[in-house]
């Protein structure tokens, strides 16, 4: 009787914590995949490059360059890395002008919707109170794992086929630790 009550509570905890953690798990899952491939891409920012021709631009001011490009004339700053190159920085874009030829390379950066926000939470850039939420989420995941093991009894429970799945889940990280560490 008491054993059944215990199992009932295990199921209640697993069910309700599962509901509570569904959204958070998706956040961490999306960001997890994104940052897993950080060698291959910037998971936060999308960078696009365009080439424009504005004709010879020697002697032009940054405002005039932007005007020729059809951009608003306001800019953050400029930089001259050498005599033939002018860099104009605006909000969201960098224009690199080859002054003699007038070829302009534009580089724009914008945040990746959804992935940026999930990374922001996953990597705890928010800090402060989010740290506690993230800790609670981690504890909840541990509880979900433990209660998940004991939810069902019998053939489909831990003593049945469950032990093979649970064993595989433990063996996988151990195998890769043995392989790579």
């Amino acid at each position: 009787m008491a054993k059944n009550r215990l199992r009932k509570w295990i199921r209640v905890i697993h069910r309700d914590l599962g509901y509570l953690c569904a959204g958070l798990t998706l956040v961490y899952a999306i960001s997890g995949v994104a940052v897993n491939h950080v060698q291959d891409w910037n998971p936060n920012v999308k960078i696009e490059r365009f080439v424009h021709e504005i004709g010879p631009a020697a002697g032009l001011s940054a405002e005039e360059v932007l005007q020729r490009l059809g951009q608003p004339p306001t800019h953050k700053s400029t930089f001259r890395p050498n005599r033939r190159t002018l860099q104009v920085f605006t909000d969201g874009s960098t224009f690199t002008v080859d002054l003699p030829t007038g070829q302009v390379q534009q580089e724009t950066s914008s945040t990746r919707p959804l992935v940026y926000e999930t990374n922001f939470l996953h990597l705890n850039h928010a800090k402060k109170a989010w740290t506690w939420i993230a800790d609670l989420f981690a504890i909840s995941l541990a509880l979900l794992a433990i209660t998940g093991l004991f939810m069902i009894k019998g053939r489909k429970g831990l003593s049945g086929r469950g032990k093979w799945f649970a064993g595989a889940g433990v063996a996988l990280p151990l195998f890769f630790l043995w392989l790579y560490l």
Binding site: Y116, W130, W132
Partner: peptide
């Protein structure tokens, strides 16, 4: 009941 963060995110990560 945990409070929301007060720190503003940087615009691009």
């Amino acid at each position: 009941f945990a409070c929301t963060s007060e720190e503003a995110p940087s615009p691009d990560g």
